[in-house]
């Protein structure tokens, strides 16, 4: 049984941050390493990510970006809705698609969309966006605790880990009587929850953060997460320093948009802004 694991998501082609994070994880020592998807986007040289993933035996699941690349879709399924965000998403996706080898794209297609892990007494469910949808945005400020409890109950998990939004967060979900609120016959998983069903008292949701770009906090750091069953769940968000100047230089050499480079150098998001809820948006500069 596992007692200490490292998790990250959203590599976004940032092989330099990935390498720095993996070295740090190795130094700290864990039982297993997991990547929750989105290998590509924003950064340069997508194929440099894959050897690192394999060398360090990282267990992976698929993100929406990976699914799109594997299936040869015309867009990243990131879920952006406004014209400016979609403009930049298209540039990023086309670059990544053209620079990811067919073999690596095929490998992305072999990845599962979920994984279940037993961490001490906790049943941990790993997903990219949410357990029900690969590109669902679960922001800290727009996801109620009641909803997260419903997810835990519906998907038989004590801890749900996701990434996708690009900003880490953790919420202990405490105790409550959650009941099924659906009469749908389409999702058999939903039928597994019954009114008044007893449940473990210690549920959590963790967004494990991303390695690909800073999280709109004005610093150049990126983040991964260590989960430990001690036996209580301990969640540690770990900052990663890496050679972001080199990344910016390589992005420029690859003629990637200056807006992406500005984010790497400043720590402030310049794109993907319209999808941010009010609280998360207010924390940023733009």
């Amino acid at each position: 049984m596992l007692s200490r694991i490292a998790l990250f998501g959203g590599i976004y082609n940032n092989y330099l941050a990935l390498e720095a994070a993996l070295r740090d994880i190795k130094r700290r020592g864990v039982d297993a390493i997991y990547c929750l998807g989105d290998f590509g986007a924003f950064g340069p040289h997508p194929d440099r990510v894959f050897p690192l993933i394999w060398d360090y035996q990282v267990e992976c699941i698929q993100g929406n970006y990976d699914q799109s690349l594997a299936l040869g879709l015309s867009d990243c399924q990131c879920g952006y809705t406004d014209p400016r965000d979609n403009y930049f998403a298209r540039i990023s996706y086309e670059y990544t698609y053209e620079h990811t080898s067919p073999q690596n794209r095929q490998w992305l297609g072999t990845l599962p969309t979920h994984r279940r892990v037993q961490l001490g007494r906790y049943r941990v469910l790993l997903c990219h966006g949410s357990p029900r949808k690969i590109n669902e945005f679960l922001w800290e400020s727009t996801t109620s605790t009641a909803f997260l409890r419903w997810l835990c109950q519906t998907y038989d998990a004590d801890v749900i880990c996701a990434t996708h939004t690009g900003i880490k967060w953790h919420r202990a979900l405490g105790n409550a009587n959650v009941v099924a609120n659906t009469v749908s016959t389409e999702n058999p998983a939903i039928h597994s929850c019954n009114e008044g069903q007893a449940r473990p008292p210690d549920w959590h949701f963790v967004n494990v953060g991303v390695l690909g770009r800073p999280e709109n906090d004005g610093t150049t750091r990126v983040w991964y997460t260590i989960l430990e069953a001690t036996p209580q769940l301990r969640v540690e968000f770990v900052p990663v320093e890496y050679d972001y100047q080199r990344l910016a230089r390589e992005m420029r050499e690859e003629r990637l948009p200056e807006e992406f480079i500005a984010t790497i150098l400043s720590g402030w998001w310049t794109t993907c802004l319209e999808i941010l809820p009010a609280k998360e948006r207010k924390r940023g500069r733009f």
Binding site: T142, T143, F147, W150, V179
Partner: peptide, 9 residues
């Protein structure tokens, strides 16, 4: 009631 139904927003 909404809390027991798991309403998100």
């Amino acid at each position: 009631k909404s809390v027991s139904l798991g309403v998100k927003e």
